[in-house]
């Protein structure tokens, strides 16, 4: 499955792209993770907060190609995307494994994926550097077998997404 998870509405969502699933986080009701470990130790694989996030993390887990579109804040994802990423932990087990020489959580049924991250906003060189290092770390915890990061201004987002969609649909 090809998936786009965006923190804003995009015109491309209104078009017909049968091979791509779109998620616009900005219109969903997603509460903050409360760090209760319920998805690991009470209802494994399921978040105890039954809001819209429970429809999104199974899609993220199943996707083989994924495009994240997020505003960047302080060198990381801004609130909307970060809230979803924190609610994504039911896709992992509590248990720890060694992965690339570091300790990380064991993944449940999460497809290895090719990821593209479009970070947008007025992003300084220092923020870009930190964000790239963040995505490098995310890759280990979010099953990216490969990834690329692209930075664009707010008004270049639509074009950047369209370019990625065109590559997927080739």
């Amino acid at each position: 499955m090809n998936l786009i998870v965006s923190d804003r509405n995009l015109a491309v969502f209104q078009e017909n792209h049968p091979s791509i699933k779109f998620v616009d986080l900005s219109i969903l009701n997603i509460a903050n993770c409360v760090g209760c470990f319920g998805c690991w130790t009470k209802t494994p694989g399921k978040c105890v907060i039954r809001d819209d996030a429970v429809k999104v993390y199974p899609l993220i887990a199943a996707s083989e190609q994924i495009l994240y579109v997020s505003k960047i804040k302080y060198g990381g994802y801004d609130t909307i995307m970060k809230t979803m990423l924190e609610r994504n932990i039911p896709v992992q087990q509590a248990f720890i494994r060694l992965f690339q020489g570091e300790t990380h959580h064991v993944q449940r049924n999460v497809a290895a994926k090719k990821a593209v991250i479009i970070g947008y906003g007025d992003i300084s060189a220092e923020e870009q550097k930190i964000f790239c290092r963040l995505v490098e770390r995310n890759a280990k915890n979010m099953s990216f077998e490969s990834y690329s990061v692209k930075f664009v201004s707010e008004n270049e987002v639509e074009d950047a997404v369209r370019n990625e969609v065109a590559i997927w649909e080739k």
């Binding site: 130790t41 694989g45 896709v91 248990f95 449940r108």
Partner: peptide
């Protein structure tokens, strides 16, 4: 550390009446 964390999390699950096998499910929202 991994062995110790296995024990830690197994005990954590047990307090909730959940076994290690159940915690190790590969299913997501199923």
């Amino acid at each position: 550390f991994i062995r110790a964390s296995d024990v830690y999390w197994e005990k954590y699950g047990k307090k909730n009446g959940v076994t290690k096998e159940e915690m190790k499910t590969m299913k997501i929202e199923e």
